[in-house]
Design a protein around this nucleic acid. Structure first.
Length: 577
RNA sequence: GCGCCCGUAGCUCAGUCGGAUAGAGCAUCAGCCUUCUAAGCUGAGGGUCGCUGGUUCGAUUCCAGCCGGGCGCACCA
C-alpha cells in the first residue's frame, strides 16, 4: 500500500499502475498480486525526481530479470510519457527513475496556494474518533521537564492525527485519589505543624520539595493556626484539599503557558464516587475475568497475554491504581472512541500488556489502545549535565525551562528526536539566537520571507496569484529542489501521523528551512533597491519581472508550508525576529 | 534470570514494511556581508551502520545468538 499523497506522486503512481495493468492485459506480465508502489526521491538528484522498485519486487514472482520487467513497464508507460515525464530510465539492478517535467512540478505551487493552511492534510482518517491522553501528572507538585516532553509529544500527536482527518480529543487524567494524595495531605500538614510550632514526624515517603513548604505557608496565611486545633485526620484532609486545588491550578497555569489546551480533564476520584470502578468490576466478573484469591481481588489479565494476573483490590480492601485505570479505560471505550492513545513515560512500558488486556477483556482488539512512550530528558547547560533528583524534590520544573528558553524552543527540542529515545536538551543552545539553534533556524526562514513582503510592499511590488503567473521561468536546480521538497510535505505529514512520530515533521522543517536559506542567499528575488527595472544580481543572474513574480510565488508557498508544519507541532511562525 | 527499548561520523541524532556511492546538525579546518534580516551561506576532512552467523540477486534495515547501555519485572503509582 502506498502512502503517496503529493500531487505529482499521485500522477506518477497512477501512470505506473496503468502501465502495469496494460502490460498484464497484453500478457506481458502475470502480476498475480498487485505490488505496492512506492515512489521515493532518489539519493542523488541526477538520478531523477522519483525512483521506483516494482520491477525488482516483481522479479521473483514473474521469474524474470528485474531489468526486463522494467523494460516492459516503461514501454507501456509511453502514452503518459510525453505530458508527465522528461525522462524515464532504467538503472542497474532494476530501478525505474522518473524525471518529471519541470512544468508539472510547478503545479505544486498552485496546489499550495489553493489549499493554504490545509495543504498537507488528508482525510484518510475520516470519521475515526481518537482520544489522546497525555501529561496526566499527579497533582502533587509542579510539572517537571519530563512532563514537558510528554506534553509536547501528546499535543503534536493530537494535531497530527487531526491533520490526517481524525476527530481528536485531548484529555488529561487527574490522579486525585489514592495513596499519593494522602501523602500530599500528610506532607503539607506536617509542614503546617512546623509553622505553628507544633512539629510532628514527617511522613515516610512524603513529598520533600520546597513547594510543599510554600503551600503550607499559604494555607497558614489563609487559615491561621485554626487547623492545629482540629483532629489530625480532619486537618490533614483539609490540607490535602487545599494543596490539591493549589497544585492542580499550578499545573493548569504551566500547561497554559506552554500553549496546551486540553478539551477534557478527567478525574480519577469521580470514577470511584460514581461507582464506575464497581461497575467495571461487575462487568469483568460477568465475563469471568475477576476472581478472589488470598483475600485479594484479581484481574485475569494473563488470559490476554499479560505475564501474570494482577491485583485490583488488596487484602486490606484498598483498590490498586490498576482498578481506576481499568474503569477509566472502560469509560473511554464506552465514550465510543475508535482509537485510544496514551502517552506515558517510558519507565511504565511494563504496564502496556495489562492495559491492552483491558481492551480485550471488554471485547475490543488490543491495538485499540496504542501507547506512545516518552523517554527521559537529560538537561544540559553548556554541555554539563544539570542534576536532578525527584526523591529529594530537587528537579528543574517545566515552567523554569519555558521561562528560560521560551515555549517554542522547548517544544521544538522536545520534538526533535524520536520520543522513545533519550533526549539531550541543552538550555544554553535552546535559547541561543543563531543558526546553531534549529528552532531559530526554522522560524527565521519564515520570518525572512515575511520580511520580503514588507520590502515588496514598500516598493509597490505585489506577489501575484500562482494561477496568473508564468512559473515556467523557475528552472534553477535550487528552485526545483525547493518545489520538490514542498511536494513531499503531505507524505511526511501522513507518515509521521501513522507512525505516531512527530519528530519526522521537525526534521523535515529543518531540511526545508535549509533549502530556503540556501536559495535566499544565492538568488535575489526582487531587483536591488534603486534598480527597479530588470537588472543584474550579484551572481550575474538576469532578474526579469517575470522571474521576480515566479520567485515571489515560490516564497509564498515555502512560507505556507513552514507555517503549516510549525503549526502542527504547536510552534509559532513569527513574522519578524 | 525474563521482558521491552536503544547501539549509525569525535558529539547529538535522522534514515530502515530489504535496494543504487549510508545522511543532517554540532564540533574541527578553509572561505563568504556596500544587497530582500550574516539570527545567514559555501567548501573540506571524518563511517568495519555494536559483533558473529543466517535468509536473499541484494541486509544498516528481516531472523538467531552474543556484547554494551537504559528501563521494567509489587497486594507502589
Amino acid at each position: 500500500m502506498s502512502v503517496t499523497q503529493g500531487v505529482i506522486q499521485e500522477k506518477v503512481e497512477s501512470a505506473l499502475r496503468q502501465a502495469l495493468a496494460d502490460a498484464k492485459a497484453k500478457g506481458l506480465l502475470k502480476i498475480e498480486t498487485c505490488p505496492g508502489i512506492t515512489l521515493d526521491a532518489p539519493k542523488r538528484p541526477e538520478w531523477g525526481d522519483l525512483a521506483n522498485t516494482v520491477a525488482m519486487v516483481l522479479a521473483t514472482s514473474e521469474k524474470m530479470a528485474p531489468q526486463d520487467i522494467a523494460e516492459i513497464i516503461v514501454k507501456n508507460l509511453l502514452p503518459a510519457h510525453d505530458q508527465l515525464f522528461e525522462r524515464v530510465n532504467i538503472v542497474k539492478p532494476g530501478f525505474i527513475n522518473f524525471t518529471v517535467r519541470p512544468s508539472v512540478w510547478l503545479e505544486v505551487l498552485r496546489e499550495i496556494e489553493r489549499q493554504e493552511s490545509a495543504y498537507g492534510t488528508t482525510d484518510v482518517g475520516i470519521g475515526k474518533r481518537v482520544l489522546v491522553e497525555y501529561v496526566s501528572a499527579n497533582p502533587t507538585g509542579p510539572l517537571h521537564v519530563g512532563h514537558g516532553r510528554g506534553a509536547a509529544v501528546g499535543q503534536a500527536l493530537a494535531k497530527l492525527l487531526k491533520a490526517v482527518g481524525h476527530d481528536v480529543v485531548n484529555e488529561y487524567y487527574i490522579n486525585d485519589a489514592g495513596r499519593q494524595m494522602k501523602l500530599l495531605g500528610a506532607s503539607v500538614y506536617a509542614r503546617y505543624r512546623e509553622l505553628v510550632g507544633q512539629p510532628i514526624a514527617f511522613p515516610e515517603d512524603g513529598y520533600h520539595g520546597s513547594y510543599i513548604r510554600a503551600v503550607a505557608e499559604r494555607i497558614h496565611a489563609a487559615e491561621g493556626d485554626r487547623l492545629a486545633t482540629l483532629p489530625p485526620d480532619q486537618a490533614e484532609q483539609r490540607c490535602r484539599e487545599l494543596a490539591y486545588h493549589e497544585l492542580l491550578g499550578l499545573i493548569r497555569n504551566d500547561l497554559h503557558a506552554f500553549g496546551m489546551e486540553f478539551d477534557s480533564w478527567f478525574s480519577e476520584a469521580s470514577l470511584i464516587s460514581s461507582g464506575a470502578v464497581e461497575k467495571a468490576f461487575a462487568d469483568l466478573k460477568s465475563r469471568d475475568l475477576l476472581f478472589e484469591e488470598d483475600g485479594a481481588l484479581w484481574f485475569r489479565s494473563s488470559k490476554f497475554g499479560d505475564e501474570k494476573d494482577r491485583v485490583v483490590r488488596k487484602q486490606d480492601g484498598e483498590c490498586t491504581y490498576l482498578a481506576s485505570d481499568i474503569a477509566y479505560h472502560r469509560d473511554k471505550l464506552q465514550r465510543g472512541y475508535d482509537l485510544l492513545i496514551d502517552v506515558w513515560g517510558a519507565d511504565h512500558h511494563g504496564y502496556i500488556p495489562r492495559m491492552q488486556a483491558v481492551m480485550q477483556a471488554y471485547g475490543h482488539p488490543k491495538d485499540r489502545l496504542q501507547v506512545v512512550l516518552v523517554q527521559l530528558v537529560k538537561l544540559l547547560r553548556g554541555g554539563a549535565e544539570v542534576k536532578m533528583s525527584k526523591r529529594t524534590g530537587e528537579f528543574v520544573t517545566m515552567r523554569e525551562v519555558i521561562e528560560e528558553v521560551g515555549a517554542d524552543a522547548a517544544k521544538f527540542y522536545f520534538l526533535m528526536r524520536d520520543s522513545k529515545t533519550q533526549l539531550d536538551f541543552d538550555l544554553e543552545l535552546a535559547k541561543q539566537h543563531s543558526s546553531d539553534n534549529p528552532v531559530y533556524y526554522v522560524q527565521y526562514a519564515h520570518a525572512r520571507i515575511c520580511s520580503l513582503w514588507r520590502v515588496a510592499a514598500a516598493r509597490g511590488i505585489v506577489c501575484p496569484s500562482a494561477l496568473e503567473t508564468d512559473l515556467t521561468v523557475l528552472t534553477d536546480p535550487d528552485e526545483l529542489g525547493l518545489i520538490r521538497k514542498l511536494s513531499a510535505y503531505p507524505e511526511v505529514l501522513q507518515a509521521s501521523a501513522v507512525a505516531f512520530e512527530p519528530h519526522r515533521v521537525t526534521y523535515y522543517l529543518q531540511q526545508l528551512a535549509a533549502l530556503m536559506h540556501t536559495f535566499y542567499n544565492k538568488h535575489r528575488i526582487m531587483p536591488p533597491a534603486g534598480d527597479q527595472e530588470s537588472g543584474e544580481s550579484p551572481s550575474t543572474e538576469a532578474l526579469s519581472p517575470k522571474i521576480t513574480a515566479a520567485r515571489l510565488v515560490l516564497m509564498r508557498a515555502v512560507q505556507q508550508v513552514l507555517r503549516n508544519g510549525l503549526s502542527v507541532l504547536g510552534i509559532s511562525a513569527p513574522e519578524q525576529m
